[in-house]
Design a protein around this nucleic acid. Structure first.
Length: 832
RNA sequence: GCGAAAGUGGCGGAAUUGGUAGACGCGCCGGCCUUAGGAGCCGGUGGGGUAACCCGUGGGGGUUCGAGUCCCCCCUUUCGCACCA
């Protein structure tokens, strides 16, 4: 055990790295390739968890690998330090959010440092500091000028538990993404960012993100949800109101036998003002609007609706159709109103059957009977031939859409259009611990942006938290009361703060220029590092952070701040860390604590196991016995190196001249094959579990040869080959267990940091086998393995196979019909 | 319901993408060392069979000289989306 004391080893090397400023990156070096390795920055919740450890172990392995390959690597960390937990801690324990947050950062920073991650700590940022968030405000003002930021009132998702509104992305099956409580709808005056202006570009660019996981791309594609169709206005009978509906099937409009509106539709009050049905409608609305999103739109919810008593006119046919309100109509989709075509849409069909509404087929199957509404069991939603559709009869309906859309445009009651599921990003939050929105509301001038020279709008420190009654900032008169920048009259500050996803939109640009006081960052400093080469994080951010940050980059480009369209070249989503098949959670009591583990095994063992136990993109089940296996490997290796170091030729001894042979050759071959295998799997493939096992294999190959050391130079070259082998092991292990690698590197007599050493290069001449195993199959079944010289031709191999008893037995008395020969690999004899 | 991914020993997982299935690690079995060991070292370990051999990558078909890998159907699991007009 005395051969390996992780605590001492790790402390020592961390101190030396730090003193040498090993991971510091100053100016960009024009002679080297720049590699930007980025991991999603953590929220400082208190302590590191195993998910962090895995994320950062992956990133550090890749970063160190690229460094050793001679690239200039930027590897940085920071803190996503605005957010609800800090505020909740203030409410529950009376601790100031700022203090609570900074203490957590201090704790977690030291945990990260104990892991020996190669970060440039000089570039560390925390988003909750005014030096950072002032630029959030600056960006907001620029967007306000360009009309990207705007204010409007809209029904929004409200989380009672977080006491704030949520963006659509932050609602997961009707529940809050953060606290999992049900989400309700409420009407709010809010600041929005016009992300929808970028919807098409966000969608189009997905094709170019070839090194992003297919899964994330398709999630974003679905999230953006482009759909092509037409907007048609239905005039309300006996009123000036027009109801706009969006449809992707304008070809079925002659079959529209009623309209259905979402309960939130803004025209409903006007529609029902004077009708006899008013009471019933209002009761229905009250009931609908009181329910939260989750069960209102749950799959199981039965279709329900109520007739408004009003009729609309189908602009194509002139037919009067009833206007209903339906619980299946989504307010966020299209215009919140649909034309219902029961014959050709399943939902409309179910609704029509339930309420006895007309079902009128207007599409005939291409080769089939016309539909009979009396006997139909479901909607016919395929394309076909138009019928009962006036002048459009006989058209194929796929083409009819185009024609009918044009017809609507020509007659001024509709137009062909594209809609997106993606909605503008509501960023106002009724919370304290976030970036204050830099706007002053003036009774005369309206909302006015705070002038740049008055930034940052600082978050007041003296604050009382009750957890009730809306935004805490609204109760701080010294914050609220101010004067209008435009007319100097008395005015009030906006008391909302920004969604914390704003913070994470651009933090990795700030890393390049973290102390710039004049602008968010200087693109001239930053440009050669962009786009980010590799971005590692959890897949849970696929439709939130990763869409917002892409949008932000485009917005910055349009502001002239950057000249890239997409921020991230390659995205890698790591899998979750589980225990006993379950997600680690306090309630389940299966949380493992990184500090405990580091104390027991050392950071290197923890890092090694995190990477060894599963491919990084898959789930990882934390398994104590497996950790011990990794620890055992390191201990054994340390002991071996300690024992043999003095028997090896001095470090730097030149390679012996002449051919090597026997075990020496085998060892050198294995060494170089391992270099190739580790390099390939660490770099392009990022299968980080393979390199670890390859290194273990190499050690297993070398160990039995050690007993032949100590007899002086026997002319075999073996001692030199062993030095090469162990130095290679140390080098290859550096990305995985860096302190350990430094330590054995030093014990092998090297003076400079292994972290600064060059990555080994596999020598082709040494990798090649001179003897190979050729598998002999007879009719596809394995019958023999022959050891032959590499490169033998078909005839030689065949002759050797015929001589083999195990093969000959199967050839006896049969006719050889065909011979398949894969050089150096396989010989398949087909007999019959 | 729709979409995607995955299914390989007792377990985590390999297989350089159509050519020796089970690398590496865990666990287990045997041996050595030891007063003792939850330490260390050596050996074994997919299943069946005394053996020659046979069977084996969720199930069933297919393509091929040859399939864990390719094609079709089905089952299971996980993850996304879920009335998107």
């Amino acid at each position: 055990m005395s051969d390996y004391d992780p605590m001492a080893v790790e402390a020592r090397w961390q101190a030396r790295w730090d003193r040498a400023g090993l991971f510091r990156v100053d100016d960009c070096d024009p002679d080297r390739k720049q590699y930007y390795c980025l991991e999603m920055l953590p929220y400082p919740s208190g302590k590191l968890h195993m998910g962090h450890v895995r994320n950062y172990a992956i990133g550090d392995a890749v970063a160190r690998f690229h460094r050793m390959q001679g690239e200039q690597v930027l590897h940085v960390i920071g803190w996503d330090s605005f957010g609800l937990p800090a505020e909740n801690a203030a409410i529950q324990k009376g601790e100031a959010p700022r203090r609570w947050t900074l203490e957590n950062i201090a704790t977690m920073r030291s945990q990260l440092q104990r892991l020996g991650l190669g970060y440039d700590w000089n570039r560390e940022i925390a988003t909750c500091l005014p030096e950072y968030y002032r630029w959030n405000q600056w960006f907001f003002l620029r967007m306000l000028e360009k009309g990207i930021a705007y204010r409007t009132s809209r029904p929004l998702n409200w989380c009672d538990s977080c006491n704030t509104v949520l963006a659509n992305e932050q609602v997961v099956s009707g529940r809050c993404w953060r606290c999992d409580s049900p989400v309700a709808r409420r009407q709010f005056e809010q600041w929005f960012l016009k992300i929808t202006d970028y919807a098409q570009e966000l969608l189009d660019n997905l094709n170019g993100l070839e090194s992003w996981p297919e899964k994330v791309r398709s999630m974003q594609q679905n999230w953006i949800g482009r759909s092509e169709g037409a907007e048609v206005a239905f005039a309300v009978d006996g009123s000036d109101l027009k109801i706009r509906v969006f449809t992707t099937r304008i070809d079925t409009i002659y079959g529209a036998t009623y309209l259905a509106l979402a309960a939130e539709h803004p025209d409903i009050p006007e529609l029902i003002r004077d009708v006899a049905e008013r009471k019933a409608v209002q009761a229905f609305l009250d009931e609908q609007l009181a329910r939260n999103l989750e069960d209102r739109f749950a799959d199981t919810a039965e279709k329900q609706g109520v007739f408004t008593g009003r009729y609309a006119v189908n602009p194509f046919s002139g037919e009067k159709v009833p206007i209903w309100i339906g619980n299946f109509v989504l307010t966020d989709v299209g215009s919140g109103a649909i034309m219902s075509v029961p014959a050709h849409d399943e939902r409309d069909f179910a609704f029509a059957r339930k309420y006895g509404l007309t079902i009128r087929p207007v599409v005939r199957p291409v080769d089939g009977e016309p539909l009979d509404p009396a006997t139909m069991e479901g909607a016919f939603s395929d394309y076909g031939i138009a019928c009962t559709s006036g002048r459009f009869d006989g058209l194929h309906t796929e083409a009819a859409g185009e024609v009918m859309g044009r017809h609507a445009e020509e007659h001024g009651f509709g137009k062909r259009t594209v809609t997106y599921r993606l909605k503008d990003w509501g960023i106002s939050r009724q919370r304290y611990w976030g970036t204050p929105i830099p706007v002053i509301h003036c009774p005369d001038c309206g909302p006015v942006g705070v002038p740049d020279d008055q930034l940052p709008v600082l978050l007041p420190e003296e604050i009382e938290f009750s957890g009730e009654g809306g935004s805490p900032l609204a109760r701080v008169p010294s914050f609220v009361e101010t004067s209008c920048p435009s007319c100097q009259g008395p005015a009030r500050r906006d008391t909302d703060t920004m969604d914390t996803f704003v913070d994470s939109c651009w933090y990795y640009f700030r890393y390049l220029d973290p102390r710039n006081g004049d602008q968010p960052f200087d693109w001239e400093q930053a440009r050669s590092w962009f786009p980010v080469d590799l971005y590692i994080g959890g897949v849970e951010h696929a439709t939130m952070h990763l869409i917002y940050t892409r949008f932000w980059t485009m917005m910055m480009r349009d502001l002239g701040l950057v000249d890239i369209d997409e921020p991230v070249l390659r995205l890698f989503t790591q899998g979750m860390v589980n225990k006993d098949g379950f997600k680690m959670s306090k309630s389940r009591g299966n949380v493992v604590d990184p500090d405990d583990l580091i104390e027991r095994y050392g950071a290197d063992t923890i890092r090694l196991f995190s990477l060894f136990a599963a491919p990084p993109d898959r789930g990882l089940d934390w398994n104590e016995a497996g950790v011990e296996g990794c620890h055992r490997f390191l201990t054994r290796l340390a002991r071996t190196v300690g024992r043999v170091a003095s028997h090896l030729p001095a470090s730097g001894t030149p390679e012996p001249m002449g051919e090597c042979n026997g075990d020496t050759l085998l060892l050198r071959r294995k060494t170089h094959q391992t270099i190739a295998r580790v390099t390939f799997n660490l770099g392009p493939r990022m299968h980080l579990n393979i390199p670890v096992s390859a290194i273990m294999e190499l050690v297993n190959t070398a160990t039995p040869l050690l007993k032949r050391l100590g007899g002086g130079d026997d002319g075999s070259g073996l001692p030199w080959a062993l030095r090469e082998c162990f130095e290679t092991v140390a080098l290859l292990l550096t990305p995985f267990a860096p302190h350990f690698a430094e330590d054995i590197w030093e014990r092998l007599g090297n003076r400079r940091f292994i972290s600064d050493a060059a990555w080994p290069v596999a020598r082709q001449d040494l990798m090649e086998e001179d003897e190979v195993t050729v598998v002999v199959q007879v009719n596809g079944k394995l019958r023999a393995r022959l050891t032959v010289a590499a490169g033998v031709d078909r005839e030689v191999a065949l002759a050797a196979a015929r001589e083999d008893e195990g093969v000959a037995r199967y050839l006896d008395g049969k006719q050889l019909r065909k011979v398949i020969f894969v050089p150096d690999k396989l010989l398949n004899l087909v007999v019959g």
